[in-house]
């Protein structure tokens, strides 16, 4: 039973990193703990045979998103945050929200493990990296066009992600490009305007 060991090991790293993010006084230290948490999540993806998601986790989150966080830290004046009290005055509201979030997530885990046997799912993680493709195969038999449904197994996490993304979730994929467009134009509008004010 090595798989549960690796799960708990990397899950502990993720939680340790997440606690570090909120506990550190220096924003840069928080960012480094966040990086540790991101790598822990990537390792969790690998234990689930989701290599592609692990690579994305490292490339986008540990690479790109981390750069954004660090630049944000560099943009704001850190001295303003350095002398602040350790517990924010919104701590009460934050605790309340965190409690409800925990109740919802915990309730979902308990409910789904009772009904659909979620706890048994990681027993065969190889299943998560294969996907079943069903498509119509067109043949010409005796001068007539016959369509027969064909199912085949495709191995590999990248292939499984690709099939899900580009066939089953076509619209969300295209909407994602609109999101990226909004992010790009928004950054240019805000960034350029600020630069013109400064210059």
């Amino acid at each position: 039973m090595t798989a549960p060991f690796f799960f708990w090991f990397f899950a502990a790293i993720v939680v340790f990193g997440a606690v570090g993010v909120v506990a550190m006084r220096q924003p840069v230290h928080s960012a480094l703990f966040l990086l540790l948490s991101f790598f822990g999540v990537a390792a969790l993806f690998i234990t689930l045979n989701a290599e592609f998601l692990a690579a994305v986790q490292v490339l986008v989150y540990a690479g790109g998103i981390m750069v954004l966080f660090l630049f944000t830290i560099m943009l704001v004046n850190i001295r303003r945050t350095a002398g602040q009290p350790y517990v924010h005055r919104q701590a009460g509201a934050a605790l309340l929200v965190a409690f409800f979030l925990l109740a919802v997530v915990g309730g979902t885990i308990v409910a789904s493990s009772r009904t659909s046997g979620l706890a048994d799912a990681p027993a065969d993680p190889a299943k998560l990296s294969t996907t079943t493709i069903s498509r119509m195969m067109t043949e010409t038999v005796d001068g007539k066009t016959v369509k027969t449904p064909v199912t085949e197994q495709v191995a590999g996490n990248s292939q499984a992600v690709a099939w899900g993304l580009y066939r089953d979730y076509l619209l969300p994929f295209e909407v994602a490009s609109v999101f990226l467009l909004v992010a790009m134009i928004g950054a240019v509008v805000l960034g350029k305007r600020t630069m013109e004010h400064v210059d």
């Binding site: 592609f52 994305v56 490339l59 986008v60 690479g63 790109g64 998103i65 750069v67 954004l68 630049f71 944000t72 560099m74 943009l75 495709v154 590999g156 990248s158 292939q159 992600v161 690709a162 099939w163 993304l165 580009y166 994929f173 994602a176 490009s177 990226l180 992010a183 790009m184 950054a187 240019v188 960034g191 350029k192 600020t194 630069m195 400064v198």
Partner: peptide, 28 residues
């Protein structure tokens, strides 16, 4: 630091994500 760094970083992340979408598409 100048906001220019942040602008470049956002553009980098956007095209980074775009490239990652290309990868599974090329595989399949």
């Amino acid at each position: 630091f100048s906001v220019r760094y942040y602008l470049i970083a956002v553009l980098f992340v956007v095209f980074d994500v775009e490239t990652i979408f290309l990868f599974p598409w090329a595989v399949m």
